[in-house]
Computed example of a mutant assay.
Amino acid sequence: MKLSENAKYLEDVAYVAGLDIPWEKLNGKTVVLSGATGLIGSFLIDVLLQRNEKNGAGIKIVALGRSKERIYSRFGFSTDNEFFMAITQDVNDDINTELKEIKADYVLHLASNTHPLQYSTDPIGTVITNIIGLKNMLDYAADSKAARFVFASSVEVYGENRGDTEYFAEDYLGYIDCNTLRAGYPESKRAGEALCQAYMKQRELDVVIPRLSRTYGPSMLKSDTKAISQFIKKGVEGEDIILKSEGTQLYSYSYVADAVSGLLYCLFLGKSGEAYNIADPDSDITLRDMAKLIAEYTGKEVVFEIPDATEAAGYSKATKAILDSTKLKGLGWSAAYDMKKGLIRTIDVLREI
């Protein structure tokens, strides 16, 4: 069974596709998304496809990725059609002729290295995707005179919590030691946000910036090495959950359906130039408690293991990173999945596909 055929997953997609938000802004429009086969991008495209199928929205979806065949396979197509087009485009390369010929109404830059193994083994790619790749997409959006550009940023822009706040609000300026390998991801996300502000001023581009908390869900990639993804994989496989630290790190998380719904609220209702945290207090949890929750559901144990040097190099040094989502909730957004519900749903779906 493919993910797009799973009943529970389709329920999640239908929930987001049925939100009471101004969908009419996308009717008949062209939406270009980088990172089309990623955790966030693939779920969002499934939502847009459902809007077309169930609501006759007529949204033309242009899905960008490094492999056209992988895009077709993920969404069940063998070729392009009137409302779906796959384009091979590495965002770090110059925009190709095929994409240049398309005028985008909305552009969403969702492509990024987003897990520890990538941070430690491809640090250059991690940085340039968030800066050079972003610049290429911003140029494309500005040339298209797009109505809005969305840059998917991250909780990691806040750096380490040094005890001066409980929750990170959007105006918090955190600490990051830039002279480390691991700093490549958060520092490039910060630089990316600054670059968005520059394009707003110099090229009059409308930009909004959702800051995602640590996101998980059944659309996650098999290559994902984030702790939560590794826990989930072990749970799906019926194995003990391996915890590679004391597990005292306290983080905010979002189930993918809530992350995408938050992104859509930013797209439709967010103020130009503003950043919005996507998180919910019911999904704030320590790694240890998360591991226990999954182990209890799957009938397994939590096992402690020391990470190797490559793994350790990619891990965040932040021990507490929880987000204040008051600003996003002010737009009308709310989460539908708490931590337990989201984890159980993810495991159940992945067991069935």
Results as ranks from 00 to 15, higher is better:
Ala257Gln: 09
Ser245Gln: 05
Gln249Tyr: 11
Arg214Glu: 08
Thr215Glu: 04
Glu237Thr: 11
Lys234Ser: 15
Ala259Thr: 11
Lys189Pro: 02
Met220Phe: 08
Met220Val: 05
Ser213His: 03
Ile209Val: 15
Thr248Ile: 03
Gln249Cys: 01
Ala227Tyr: 08
Ile228Arg: 11
Lys189His: 03
Ala198Trp: 00
Ile241Tyr: 05
Tyr253Leu: 01
Ser188Tyr: 02
Val256Cys: 06
Tyr255Cys: 08
Cys196Tyr: 01
Gly217Met: 03
Ser219Thr: 15
Pro210Phe: 10
Ser245Tyr: 10
Ile242Met: 06
Ser213Gly: 13
Tyr255Trp: 04
Gln249Glu: 15
Gly235Gln: 02
Glu239Asp: 12
Glu237His: 03
Arg190Asn: 12
Asp206Phe: 05
Gly238Thr: 04
Ala227Lys: 11
Val208Leu: 02
Cys196Ser: 04
Cys196Trp: 06
Leu212Val: 03
Glu193Tyr: 10
Leu212Asp: 00
Ile228Gly: 05
Arg203Ile: 02
Gln202Val: 11
Met220Ser: 10
Tyr253Ile: 00
Ala259Cys: 15
Ser254Met: 15
Glu239Val: 09
Ile241Thr: 09
Gly217Glu: 00
Gly247Arg: 06
Ala198Gln: 11
Glu204Asp: 10
Gly247Pro: 10
Glu204Tyr: 01
Lys244Thr: 14
Asp206Tyr: 00
Tyr199Ala: 02
Tyr251Gln: 07
Leu195Asp: 05
Ile241Pro: 03
Gly217Val: 03
Lys233Val: 12
Lys226Cys: 05
Arg203Leu: 00
Phe231Thr: 13
Pro218Asn: 00
Asp206Cys: 08
Thr225Val: 09
Gln249Asn: 14
Pro218Gly: 00
Ile241Trp: 13
Ser219Tyr: 03
Ile228Trp: 05
Ser254Ala: 14
Arg203Lys: 12
Ser219Pro: 01
Ser223Leu: 09
Val236Tyr: 12
Ala227His: 04
Tyr251Arg: 14
Ser219Trp: 00
Ile232Asn: 04
Ser245Asn: 11
Asp258Glu: 14
Leu212Asn: 06
Glu193Trp: 04
Val236Asn: 02
Val236Lys: 00
Ser213Ala: 15
Ser254Tyr: 07
Thr215His: 06
Arg211Met: 02
Lys201Ala: 08
Val236Arg: 00
Met220Trp: 03
Tyr199Ile: 04
Gly238Leu: 10
Leu250Ser: 05
Ser219Lys: 08
Leu250Gly: 07
Met220His: 03
Lys233Arg: 15
Glu204Arg: 06
Glu204Lys: 12
Ile209Pro: 12
Ala191Met: 10
Met200Tyr: 06
Pro218Ile: 02
Ser252Gly: 13
Tyr216Thr: 02
Ser188Asn: 04
Thr225His: 01
Ala257Cys: 10
Ser254Arg: 11
Ser252Phe: 10
Asp258Gly: 13
Lys201Ser: 07
Val208Gln: 05
